[in-house]
Design a protein around this nucleic acid. Sequence first.
RNA 1: CGGAGUGUAGCGCAGUCUGGUAGCGCACCUGGUUUGGGACCAGGGGGUCGAAGGUUCGAGUCCUUUCACUCCGACCA
Length: 509
Amino acid sequence: MRFSKLLIPTTKETPNDATLPSHIYLIKGGFIQSVGGSGLYNFLPLGKKILDKVRAVVKDELDKAGCQEVSLSFVTPAAFWEESGRLEKYGKELLRFKDRKSNDFILGPTHEEMMVNLVRQTVKSYKQLPLNLYQINLKFRDEIRPRFGLMRGREFLMKDGYSFHASTEDMLREFALMEETYKKIFTRLGLEFRVVEADSGAIGGSGSKEFMVLADSGEDTIVVCDDCEYGANIEAAIAQPRIYDTHTELKTIVKKALYDDGKSICVGFVLPVDTELQDVKACNAVDANDLAECDTEDKLAMVVIEEALGAAVDPSQFDVQEMIYADISSVQEGDSCTVCGGKLRYTKGIEAGHIFQLGTQYSKPLGANFLDENGKAQPMVMGTYGIGVSRLLAAIIEQNHDDKGCIWTKESAPFALQIIVSNIKDDEQVALGENLYEAMLAHGMDVLLDDRKDRFGAKMKDYELLGVPHAVVIGKNLTDGMVEFVTRKGMQTEEVSVENITDFLKKRL
RNA sequence: CGGAGUGUAGCGCAGUCUGGUAGCGCACCUGGUUUGGGACCAGGGGGUCGAAGGUUCGAGUCCUUUCACUCCGACCA
């Protein structure tokens, strides 16, 4: 492509609301454009191209693993969500609206219901299982506070996959296959990531793992072990219990646990003073939908004691109907790993993928049954697998940038090579640029030729901002028969003679 | 939803206190000069000042209402 023909509106100025490198550079580089509404973005040609490349990697690996792509209707009849019980539970992130006939619809934030519906209509026998269907489509979540550009938009591109099995064993096999497949995807995209144990959240289910792209700007705190592979989201992390005795100072944190139909109870969480209450663990311990601050001095209906305290706490001191022990405190840095005993530490990650063992949580209420070998109806056992595709663009930049701009990884780069003609008035430079451009195109390389009338400085700034992995600068040294080969990462340059440059490029790229 | 703030040209902002012809930088258009680190000169186009109502001879500016967005805290790929 020729730069002069492309819509790449790069800017010198930084948008004032952008704080993350990915947000700043994606806007400045003209990859995306804010739509003005919060959390909504247009993808401009370059951004769309990268999105397609990332999407292609995801699709390629999934298809190789035997998954099948479908495309579900974006607008979803609310009836499906009533059936699964999530219409109530999902909350305000779910965008609801009516059509002209006053029928209720939602914009899908995730598509378990739709996919189960698709399958229950078409799959009746164990002979048709297992099945792994996915789509790479727009999702909409009416986020309370969208921010960070593509990182947390309201509309976003997500790959969501769903697998259906005749047995739990087979689902676990597929779950492991998807973990391996996801590793291949993230590796191909050039990302440094960690697979961690996670809480299942609103999607539900038993086991779940998150794929965390490691970056300081990540919104999630993850606990990792330096000595082994153990990693977990702080929400789900476990450590070897600390030792406490009866002298341990305790604190009680009171929260209101919220349940379906607006029910709530006041719960006291008892833990050592030097530890933190982990809200998600606490929420799970009392099987609640959510925890809120207790506004009144309600009587405690329940007490949950950190299980590590064990005999160190005297249960008779609490005057309540119900008392349980559970792991409710946050793992702290320096705690010991349950796998190998090594020291645990915190790091930050961007959640880019999440895989769940769903079981029959959706197939049962939605009646997705199959007939087994004995002709008996059974609910299908399900897994669900997500990748935030548009978020990956942001994650790639969070992990690969410098103070000048983006540095795209090989598989995500908008172009493999950028040819920069530094003085467009110099006929010799222009001629070489054109020749090289044609030669590389003929060689099947995706090349960007910067043939604009701008000066050298402006072109280099744009090159650095756009972050194409390599460039050839045709400039002053052409009088000595030399051009420069530039590697964006580190901005290293190598002098190459004009005679050799074509072969050089073929070899290096 | 709680707290803080901002709405003026495509983007970034000044002007609001103290009412009196709507401005600056970037970007854009025309002509010329320039070409190794976001050039320069000259000329030019572009605005219901977020919206509605009010006060006033006169409102971007004062008053009332409203909407939107941003930032800090609780949800999520």
